[in-house]
Nucleic acid binder design. Structure first.
Lengths: 347, 347
DNA sequence: TTTAAGAGGTTTAACGTTAAACCTATCACG
DNA sequence: CGTGATAGGTTTAACGTTAAACCTCTTAAA
């Protein structure tokens, strides 16, 4: 590979001059500049970022740690970070922990095995000397990821950090659930079932709060028998839906589109029609939602915005040392209306 | 950050000795080794990969260029590459070109604007001094990506390279299409429609060949009126399905699950039932397929395997300079049976 | 007793770039 | 005519690591 020195020798100038020209420093003659630029082009010189990084003591690289790159929420957050970083001249390195691939059902294994995956990843990002780190959680909860006094600027997304110094950018579960349940109520539904995710999961809890708040504000009594839990999966939701639809509910709020799939399947079994006999609302706007028949009304996760916001916070910290005042940023989801919720006729 | 020198001073040995210990070189005394390792641990030393890379002239990093990280085929290929690379001690850097985000409908813009995106990405990977590059195409075709005599070992996936020196790992469209059409025929269908992707796209062409081959082997006449094209999207497929189902076809082979969604929607409009009145087969096994009602019978793309295979070829080249004998590797898809294809009753 | 072969290191230089300090010729101005 | 400023450079050293060459002491064998 061609180096600065070779360009310098070819042009009879010092390497420093070549470096100055390529970095737009002043104090270079016009003809020298032109000759050097021509030679750079001719010899196909590519700056060596490794050497630059060593000398400048900054890599202009940020690390992204991802619990699972194949998890449907991840790529769009990554995209949000990358397109923000690109504007500011930063590269990105993605480390994939592949948690789901490793522990499909338990998701985080125990704390020890989680750290046996995480620590090498963190180690490596430190060794690459990234200027900052963004962590993308997969199936959120509170994560004990960055140790106290972690030396590299870092931001958590899609989950909260146990280390309170680390800012978190998360979706506003409660508000979003509140909104979609309000919508169900506005369509005349009052007997509204819920199929939630894992029972003690923070998302499930928050969305349940939003549901309760909407009921409360409309003076609808909360009925715990209509609230069921299904581990975020279609099969579980199918199982729970079979029980739920034995009651008099006219609508169901599923906390994931995947689980709405279970509700659809159940209603299909029963010979009932979604959006005619029973209303179904989802959550996520996962790409599957558009393929349901009828289309699934749901809340779209603001994934790109999460990535973008996290990147903004990180870069403010990297570039100006600015600590984010607000440690927890809640981003609202966006309501997507399709055809799975009908107006309830008043008898 | 702690450096080798500081560890060395602390232990009263030379930096070389510390380096030797950390790199498992022989010729170090047991007590020196132990003292150094303890100090490394105590002072929290993290090797500086930047400096290592400069000195060793290898970065143990491979670059992945991705047309679109949010494209559903991409993350799993990336995962395949990463998990292979990780085993061999290689890091990965992902460059996202975001082609789809930029040119939603045209996909590649013209050759010039494509290169105005690609070239900086390639440049950058050269500047990082990656040891090798894998390109992941999004919406495949033949791609003019790596120039002749490109100095870094490279592999193309999901599409062919115009540069014949670059090995390509692609799915075996023809064989896979052949298989699924054979399956339709085995269920008694002979009047089989097709909804293809873009007309001149290489995938469409190859899958059409597979379709024709299956017909031919079963002595079924090819009827061009039953073959329609829909730009890989649901809406187009819905439009084409409305025409197609005016004919006497009893089954349709859709070249993408998304397009099968259009066929389902059309049959729903017509009050016909998938897997009872009309059989539908898809292609991709995109995550949506499992949510169709009834579940969509389709061919699963071997995405992880593509990534894994590409990485193997690349590492053979990087580590042993071994040129891949076979420049084009075809990986077959896997048949996934669900309920969208029924046995045709003989009248 | 001499020699050879290790064990257990150390010293030096280099990877490619650039910050900081330094040098020289030219020109304007009091 | 001397001084200072400026344009247009050059030289040196350093970023953190490691390959290669070198050194010294001990031990065993001839």
């Amino acid at each position: 590979m061609v180096t600065l020195k070779e360009i310098a020798r070819e042009c009879n100038v010092s390497p420093t001059t070549v470096s100055n020209i390529l970095n737009g420093k002043p104090k270079v003659g016009d003809d020298t500049r032109q000759k050097v630029l021509e030679t750079v082009d001719k010899m196909g010189y590519k700056p060596n970022y490794i050497a630059q990084g060593l000398r400048r003591q900054e890599t202009r690289t940020i690390g992204i740690i991802v619990e699972d790159i194949a998890q449907f929420t991840t790529p769009e957050i990554v995209e949000g970070i990358m397109s923000n970083g690109e504007e500011k001249g930063y590269r990105t390195v993605v480390k994939n922990m592949r948690l789901y691939a490793r522990w499909r059902d338990t998701w985080y294994g125990d704390e020890n095995s989680y750290h046996s995956i995480l620590d090498p990843a963190l180690q490596e990002l430190e060794s690459i000397r990234v200027d900052g780190i963004i962590y993308i959680a997969g199936h959120a909860r509170i994560i004990n990821c960055f140790p106290p006094n972690f030396p590299i600027p870092a931001v958590m997304t899609y989950a909260f950090s146990k280390n309170p110094d680390i800012p978190s950018v998360v979706i506003d579960d409660q508000k979003s659930a509140y909104e979609i349940v309000q919508y169900l109520i506005s369509k005349g539904h009052t007997k509204i079932g819920v199929i939630g995710g894992r029972k003690n999961n923070i998302h499930t809890q928050q969305r349940l709060l939003g549901y309760q708040k909407a009921l409360f504000e409309n003076e609808i009594l909360y009925n715990p028998n209509w609230v069921r839990y299904a581990e975020w999966e279609k099969e579980g939701a199918l199982r729970e839906a079979r029980e739920l639809f034995k009651t008099e509910v006219t609508a169901v709020f599923c906390m994931a589109d995947r689980m709405a799939g279970g509700a659809y399947a159940c209603l299909d079994e029963m010979g009932l029609r979604v959006g005619v006999d029973i209303a179904v609302a989802g959550f996520d706007n996962q790409n599957i939602a558009d393929f349901f028949l009828p289309g699934l009304t749901t809340m779209a996760l603001p994934l790109k915005e999460i990535g973008d916001t996290a990147a903004n916070i990180l870069f403010r910290k990297i570039q100006y040392g600015e600590e984010s005042a607000q440690k927890q940023i809640w981003i609202p989801c966006k309501f997507i209306e399709r055809q799975s919720v009908h107006e309830l006729k008043i008898e």
